[in-house]
Design a binder for these strands. Structure first.
Lengths: 214, 214
DNA sequence: GCCTTTAATTGATTTGTGTCAATGATATAT
DNA sequence: ATATATCATTGACACAAATCAATTAAAGGC
């Protein structure tokens, strides 16, 4: 777990003592697929760290369809901001597969770590990272059409999410499985990609790139 | 200017000495309507503070239409992250009306202020604020359809932007002026709002609310 | 292994929003 | 004050993506 925590920006410079203390104020929780981690409106009591599995952060649109705002994979800090601001969670969170979470008692964490300015640099780094991700999400969703989103997802995000099925990939990209399927079909017909037992392989990287870097 | 700077989260706890030093490393720039502040890809040399007027942060989509990612009004810090990370600007920025900017030499700012941990708390606060805004943008753009966006904009964002014309309001909401106009017409026909010499008045707040808080 | 459920694909249709075009209204400049 | 440019509105049409529906494929449970 130590190594895993060090992959997370906010903990990367924690020393052994810090990590030991962190464990004394934490518990590990294992959740089955499609379990709720928290609901929109809940008061945050824990800092959640995703040790294994994957989560989605989501809301509902007018038509009560889920809109996935963020997907989180192993070694992520979940929704740090609601904690920091002592505000209720702005979105829902649930598991996409069986997952293991570290629940850190936030009151204790705040008292021990956040009063200490040596940790603030790490905090700034973590927040900075969060901003970069958010800006990427905005730009991705607002400037690209469905075809481009799929192309870019295949090109750059794909390796990390290749174990996921089409349905989840589509929802990550905020489109329906039907649309996703049709675009994948088009790419196959154009010989840009091929798919063998669920594993996608890119055949023509350059042509695929043309779909998104205008 | 002192009072204005103190409205900006990152400067709110600056003392007089800090503010005086800030001025020695800054210049003021006045720009006409539709002037470029920076282009995507530029290297940031200044920390920009918007003293007067308004700006847009934008990119282009596949069809070379502008997509506005953010609008900034008086007393805003512009694109702090590109500075912090020493990365090129990820988007373009231009003025929406005649505007006055404070250009702070970022190299000097960083040396004087960011090495000092007493300023880090303010920095965390500023970043936190930025994250909240970004999350709101994502949620706004991904969960609402055009009608809901206009309703919510009228309801909550409107007073601050009532001096703007329809074209800019539409682009703030990432829709065409035509779509905006049609929705406004619908709301007028339903007696939800009325418009007199460019000034919108809400007639039925409850009904307007129903369009966005599902 | 078979049965049941969930996921994937494909076609037909609908819907929301953008595009194009024409006209009327405002603002700005000379 | 008039001319010119910009903005606003409205209608007709186009298009991307969602929805609905039907079928096939794959995965999980017993």
């Amino acid at each position: 777990m130590k190594d895993l925590l060090k992959q997370i920006p906010i903990f990367e410079n924690f020393n052994d003592d810090d990590l030991v203390y962190l464990q004394t104020i934490s518990t590990v929780q294992t959740l089955k697929k499609n379990s709720i981690v928290f609901f929109k409106g809940d008061e945050p009591r824990y800092l959640h760290v995703l040790l294994e599995g994957s989560l989605k952060i989501y809301k509902y649109n007018q038509n009560n369809n889920e809109v996935m705002l963020k997907m989180l994979n192993t070694a992520s800090l979940v929704a740090e901001l609601a904690n920091l601001e002592h505000m209720p969670y702005p979105s829902n969170c649930s598991t996409l597969e069986e997952s293991k979470l570290l629940l850190i008692d936030y009151g204790k964490f705040e008292n021990h770590f956040l009063k200490d300015s040596k940790f603030l640099f790490m905090f700034v780094k973590s927040l900075t990272n969060a901003i970069l991700m958010l800006e990427k999400t905005i730009s991705f969703n607002l400037t690209l059409n469905s075809t481009s989103k799929v192309a870019r997802h295949l090109y750059e995000i794909f390796p990390s999410s290749c174990h996921m099925n089409h349905k989840i990939r589509a929802s990550t990209l905020n489109m329906t499985p039907e649309t996703y399927s049709r675009i994948i079909r088009k790419f196959k017909d154009e010989n840009l990609i091929k798919e063998e037992n669920g594993k996608v392989e890119i055949l023509d990287e350059e042509k695929l790139k043309k779909y998104f870097d205008a």
